[in-house]
Simulated scan of single mutants.
Amino acid sequence: MSDWLTVTEGDAPLVIAFPHVGTDLADVEGRFRSPWLARRDADWWVDDLYAFAADLGATLVSTRISRSVIDLNRDPSGASLYPGQATTELCPTTTFDGEPLYKDSAPDEAEIARRRTRWFDPYHAALTAQIARLRTRHARVVLYDAHSIRSRVPRLFDGELPQFNIGTNGGTTCDPALAAKVQAICAASGESHVLDGRFRGGWSTRHYGAPDKGVHAIQMELAIRGYMDEPDTPTQANWPPPFDPARAAPLTETLSHILKAALAFTAEDA
């Protein structure tokens, strides 16, 4: 679709969004203190992890733009998704660990508006269009927002994150039956999981999820240890580790079951 936004259209009633897999720092790279730090918090290899989804007929929407340039899963107004908890902004000024990203001043209102127009708005226009396209053909459509994060980020959460973190914003963004199906599959995997824990769903999940209108949105935040050899402390020498399909195989199998269950849900009587 463009040099930074890719849309792979499928006919199944499932859209998978990848807002944080990009590492392109675009025309602001020179403003960052460290390009490596600006790329470190990407959702590494998540689009590779879900590559099988195209064979299920899913529509895939992904971006090459780094979340450090603009976070496509934040409220464009700048309002916090998690009041009272540490988080990063629409145009982040720090890493997940709180390290400053910029050499000098952070982006001002005019620069944030430019980045919204350049990247945020087209990304969400693409998501909106794909959901609308599929809703003309299907009574129910699932938007699945795909993410991952390091297992331990003390600034953001205590201890080790569960392997599967399912977000439905307290049951408001999808039918509880869909959330229950996903939860049961995660439990059957033998790995740790939680529903609406620390990650309850970002802006995309909350914005598009409208069960009464046939759009069921769910976020999956994976602990990154499930599919790559995660070091205790990321450094430029060890991060990111390469994607390991063999290591990821059990996780991929569970994710395949989840997406197939989402498709089965869309075929049920509404």
Rank of each mutant, 00 (worst) to 15 (best):
H257E: 14
P162V: 00
C174M: 05
L222N: 06
Q85C: 08
M1A: 15
T205R: 00
W45L: 02
P122M: 10
L101H: 05
E9K: 15
T254V: 12
S192M: 05
A237Q: 11
D43M: 05
A210N: 13
N73G: 08
H124Q: 06
D104G: 10
T136W: 05
I224L: 14
M220K: 12
F199A: 00
P234K: 05
H20S: 03
D212M: 11
E99I: 07
L90G: 08
D212I: 08
F18S: 09
I166Y: 03
S66N: 05
D11H: 12
A129N: 14
P240G: 07
T235R: 07
S62K: 06
P19K: 01
A270W: 10
A139Q: 12
T94W: 04
R33H: 06
R74G: 09
A51R: 15
S204W: 13
E191K: 13
G190N: 11
S204F: 12
Q183Y: 09
E253S: 15
E89L: 04
T205N: 01
G57V: 00
F96G: 06
T8R: 14
G197S: 06
G226M: 01
L178C: 05
H20T: 05
T173Y: 00
D41R: 00
P13L: 06
T168I: 06
D41A: 01
G171H: 00
V7I: 13
H138F: 12
D232Q: 12
W36Y: 01
A184T: 12
T172S: 14
L263M: 04
H193K: 01
L37R: 14
A187M: 07
R137M: 10
E99Q: 13
T94R: 12
R206E: 10
L25G: 04
S256Y: 11
A132P: 03
T254I: 04
P19F: 00
Q85H: 11
T87N: 08
L72C: 05
G209T: 00
G167L: 01
R116K: 15
F18K: 03
V21F: 07
L127M: 02
R114K: 11
S77P: 07
T87W: 01
L251C: 03
T88H: 13
A246S: 13
A261Q: 10
Y144Q: 08
V61I: 15
A132S: 13
Y82K: 10
A246R: 15
D55C: 10
W4I: 09
P176R: 00
L101T: 03
D175I: 09
A106T: 12
D212G: 10
L81P: 11
I65Y: 03
G170N: 06
L161K: 14
E221S: 08
R198W: 06
S66H: 04
D121G: 08
